[in-house]
Measured scan of single mutants.
Amino acid sequence: MQIFVKTLTGKTITLEVEPSDTIENVKAKIQDKEGIPPDQQRLIFNGKQLEDGRTLSDYNIQKDSTLHLVLR
Score class of each variant (00 low, 15 high):
E24H: 14
T55H: 12
E34S: 13
Q62V: 12
Q41M: 15
E34W: 03
K63L: 13
R72V: 03
R72M: 08
D52E: 14
G35F: 11
L8V: 05
T14A: 09
E16R: 04
D52W: 04
V17A: 12
L15Q: 01
L69F: 02
F45N: 03
H68E: 11
V70R: 02
V5K: 00
T9D: 10
D32Y: 02
D58Q: 12
R54L: 10
K63S: 12
E34Y: 08
I44Y: 07
S65D: 09
D21H: 09
R54H: 13
M1S: 11
K33V: 09
E51A: 14
E16V: 06
K63I: 11
I61M: 02
Q31I: 10
I3G: 00
N60T: 02
D52F: 04
I13L: 10
S20R: 15
T9H: 04
I36V: 02
Q49K: 10
E18V: 09
L71N: 12
G10V: 06
S65Y: 08
L50W: 01
S65M: 13
Q49E: 11
T22V: 13
Q2H: 10
L67M: 04
I23E: 01
H68F: 09
V17L: 07
L69D: 01
N60M: 13
P19W: 05
E16F: 11
K11G: 07
I23S: 06
I3P: 00
D58A: 15
P19F: 06
D52R: 13
N25G: 06
Y59H: 14
P19H: 05
L8Y: 08
G35N: 02
L15Y: 04
V5I: 11
A28I: 15
K63M: 07
K63W: 06
R54S: 13
K29Q: 14
T14P: 15
M1F: 12
N60W: 07
V70A: 10
L43T: 01
R54Q: 07
V5T: 02
K33Y: 13
E18Q: 03
K48M: 13
S57N: 15
V70E: 07
N25E: 12
D39H: 09
I23H: 05
T14L: 09
E51G: 03
L67A: 01
Q41S: 15
G10E: 12
K48N: 13
M1H: 07
D52H: 09
S65P: 01
T12K: 12
R42Y: 12
I30V: 03
I36N: 08
T22N: 13
K29F: 05
T12L: 02
F45E: 02
K63F: 10
T9G: 11
I23M: 02
I3Y: 00
K6W: 04
S20Y: 10
I13F: 07
P19S: 04
H68V: 02
Q40V: 10
K63P: 13
L69H: 01
D58F: 12
V17E: 01
D32R: 04
T22P: 10
Y59E: 03
R42E: 09
Y59R: 01
G47L: 11
L71P: 07
Q31M: 10
K11I: 12
I44M: 15
A28Y: 14
N46I: 07
L56P: 01
Q62H: 07
V17I: 10
H68K: 02
T12P: 14
R42N: 02
P19L: 13
K11V: 14
Q41R: 09
R54G: 09
V17D: 01
F4G: 10
T9V: 05
R72Q: 09
S20E: 09
E18S: 08
T7N: 10
I61N: 00
T66F: 13
L71E: 06
E18L: 04
F45G: 12
P19I: 09
L43V: 09
Q49I: 08
T22W: 13
L15E: 01
G53H: 06
T12W: 10
V70M: 09
T66H: 15
L8S: 13
D58E: 13
N46Q: 07
L8E: 06
P37W: 12
G10N: 05
K6G: 05
S20A: 13
T55Y: 13
P37R: 05
Q31N: 06
Q49F: 04
N25T: 02
K11S: 10
L69Q: 04
N60V: 07
D64R: 02
K48I: 10
T22F: 10
F4K: 12
I30R: 00
I36Y: 15
G47F: 06
T7V: 12
V17M: 11
I36P: 13
A28L: 15
E24K: 02
Q49P: 09
K33E: 09
H68S: 14
T14F: 10
K27S: 07
K33R: 02
N60G: 12
H68Q: 04
D64P: 03
D39I: 09
K33I: 14
L71V: 12
T55S: 09
I13D: 01
I30A: 05
D52A: 08
N25M: 14
D64V: 07
T14K: 05
G47K: 12
P37Q: 06
V17W: 02
I23R: 01
S57T: 07
G53I: 07
Q62R: 08
K29M: 04
T7H: 04
I13G: 08
R42L: 15
E51K: 06
K63D: 08
Y59I: 09
I23F: 13
L71R: 15
L56E: 00
I30Y: 06
Q41H: 07
T12A: 07
K63G: 09
S65I: 03
V26E: 00
Q2N: 05
G53W: 05
L15I: 08
D39N: 02
N60H: 15
I3E: 00
K11F: 03
K27T: 03
M1D: 08
N46M: 06
T55V: 06
A28S: 12
K33L: 11
L43W: 02
N46D: 08
K6D: 06
Q40E: 06
